[in-house]
């Protein structure tokens, strides 16, 4: 396959970025999208150019480190698929592919396609946990959790923290990410004791990090590689309002 790439190149968050055009002639359909970028990078290095910096690690769709906008869509055209699991068989010979970083003011660009997503960690730091120290835990089966509860909690806990939801949102909101953690813990007996304090801290932190507000466009759910549901956002709003009302 012959592929034309238009890739966003930017030295750092202070510099101005631009699209640069590259051509690859021998792209195999079995290559993953990132392997295609590897191939481009080897070519660039040998020409004496700087390779395209991009984030990636496990390359099996679970670590959440990879993620770019491919033709304007977070993680590319396939549903429920991270960038690393996208293969070139999803493209056609002669295609032109636009590749950009996940853009959001809370995600400063490190270089090229690499962005700093520490803001997501900060949201968890503000309260995304159960306050239990090592050694305090009771016998595991003393806290029964029904099958349905565990499955529902898992559906929310499956978030990989890639930031596609933020990149897909016109407001750069992290509501899906934040609500997934709130929802995961609120649905379990271990976690629900702290729900009201947790939800307020996390929502406040989300705003402090510079993420926008949710206006229910639901674009986040559409692009989420894990299919995290926007119903989590509804639960977050419910818990948030409840917590504020209880205080008064």
């Amino acid at each position: 396959m012959k592929i034309t790439l238009k890739i966003w190149r930017q030295r750092d968050c202070q510099s101005k970025g631009e699209f640069k055009e590259y051509h690859l002639d021998k792209v195999s359909k079995d290559m993953s999208f990132l392997e295609m970028l590897d191939t481009l990078n080897i070519k660039l290095i040998k020409q004496g150019d700087l390779p395209v910096e991009f984030d990636h690690d496990c390359r099996e769709g679970i670590c959440g480190q990879c993620g770019v906008m491919i033709n304007g869509i977070a993680h590319g055209p396939l549903k429920n698929t991270t960038t690393c699991q996208l293969h070139m068989r999803s493209f056609n010979d002669g295609d032109t592919i636009y590749v950009e970083p996940f853009k959001a003011s809370a995600f400063p660009i490190v270089r090229d396609l690499k962005v700093n997503r520490s803001a997501l960690d900060h949201i968890i730091t503000s309260g995304g946990y159960v306050s239990v120290d090592t050694g305090q835990a009771p016998e595991a089966n003393s806290i029964p959790v029904t099958f349905e509860q565990a499955e529902a909690a898992f559906d929310a806990a499956a978030c990989i923290g890639c930031g596609a939801c933020v990149a897909s949102c016109k407001n750069s909101s992290a509501a899906l990410f934040t609500s997934a953690k709130i929802s995961h813990l609120a649905q379990l007996p271990q976690g629900d004791k702290e729900t009201s304090t947790r939800v307020v801290s996390m929502v406040n932190q989300m705003e402090e990090e510079g993420f926008g507000h949710c206006t229910n466009t639901e674009a986040c759910e559409v692009e989420c590689p894990e299919g995290i549901s926007v119903l989590n956002i509804a639960r977050m709003n419910y818990e948030y309002n409840r917590s504020r009302l209880m205080k008064k």
């Binding site: 946990y129 159960v130 239990v132 089966n141 806290i143 099958f147 565990a150 499955e151 806990a157």
Partner: peptide, 22 residues
């Protein structure tokens, strides 16, 4: 065994039987 206790207390959603046990 302690590890399972600790992880459950942290909210790790392990697979459950319908009755709620692990």
């Amino acid at each position: 065994a302690s590890l399972i206790d600790q992880a459950v207390a942290q909210g790790v959603p392990f697979g459950r039987e319908y009755g709620g046990y692990l």
